Every structure is written in structure tokens, then in C-alpha cells.
Amino acid sequence: MTSSPTPRHTDDLPIRDDMIRLGQALKLANLAEDGAQARSLVEEGQVSVNGEVETRRGRQLHPGDVVSTGGAAVRITAGG
């Protein structure tokens, strides 16, 4: 399993609730075009959460978590 390249910079992804699922976050942040692509990225080990490869698309993310894939990254923030 290989990890994603180191992101060039991290954008903020504000969310309304106190958590969001990984697959939803990938779509909302435009890191995946749709649910099918989000599922593929996660299953193939191309997504990292807080620097560790994550293979669970339903992983709960909370403000402060950082998701990265393909050289792009987003930080989950409160208040979307």
C-alpha cells in the first residue's frame, strides 16, 4: 500500500454538523467527482486521514481532521 503524495497546501472544508463521513467529504471538497470515485480512491488506499491511509469510506471525520489524496488536502472545520 502506498500513501498519497504530500499535499502542496491544505484548504479548509467547513461542515455544518460535528462530523462528516469520509466519502461525503471527498465529494464536497471536489477531491472525488462522485460516490463511485470516492469509493475507488478509498478502497485503493489512495486517501489519507491525518497522515495515515484510510480504507473505510464511512470513517467519521471531525473538525481538525485532514484528508488528502492525489496531492490535494482539506482540513475539516466547523461552521459550514
Rank of each mutant, 00 (worst) to 15 (best):
T55L: 14
G70S: 12
H9K: 07
D34L: 09
P63S: 13
G64H: 04
V47Y: 00
Q60C: 13
V74R: 01
D11C: 11
S48L: 11
G35F: 13
G64Y: 01
S48W: 00
Q46T: 08
T10I: 14
H9Q: 09
D12H: 09
G64T: 01
Q24H: 10
S40Q: 08
L61C: 07
E43P: 00
K27W: 05
R39T: 08
S4Y: 03
M19K: 06
Q46M: 11
V53A: 12
G45A: 12
L13Y: 00
I76S: 03
T55C: 10
G58M: 12
T2M: 13
S68T: 14
D18Y: 03
M19V: 06
V67R: 01
Q46S: 12
Q37A: 11
H62Y: 07
T2R: 14
R21K: 10
I15N: 00
P14M: 07
A36Q: 12
G80Q: 06
T69K: 03
P7D: 10
P14W: 04
A78P: 05
T2A: 15
A38W: 00
Q60I: 11
G80T: 08
I15S: 02
G51F: 09
A36K: 12
L28V: 04
P5I: 15
P5V: 15
L13G: 04
E54M: 05
S48T: 14
I76D: 02
P5L: 15
R59M: 10
D65M: 04
R21Q: 06
I76V: 15
T6E: 15
G58I: 12
Q60K: 13
D11G: 10
P63G: 09
R59W: 02
A73T: 04
L22W: 01
V67I: 11
V74N: 01
G79L: 09
D34F: 14
G58P: 01
D18M: 01
R59H: 07
R59A: 14
E43C: 08
R56I: 08
T10D: 04
I15D: 02
D11K: 09
G80L: 06
V53E: 08
A29K: 08
H9Y: 09
A25E: 01
L26S: 06
S4L: 10
I15P: 01
T77Y: 07
H62M: 08
S68M: 10
T55Q: 14
D17P: 07
L61G: 01
D65V: 00
E54V: 03
V74D: 03
S3H: 05
P5Q: 15
P5R: 15
G71F: 06
R39D: 03
Q60F: 05
R39K: 14
T77D: 13
G23R: 06
L13I: 09
V49T: 00
H62R: 08
V47G: 03
P5T: 15
Q24A: 14
R8C: 11
G80C: 07
A36F: 12
E52K: 12
L22I: 12
T77C: 11
Q60W: 04
V49A: 02
D34G: 13
D18A: 04
T6V: 14
H62V: 08
V66S: 05
K27F: 05
P5A: 15
L22N: 09
M19Y: 04
L41Y: 07
N30M: 09
N50K: 12
R56T: 11
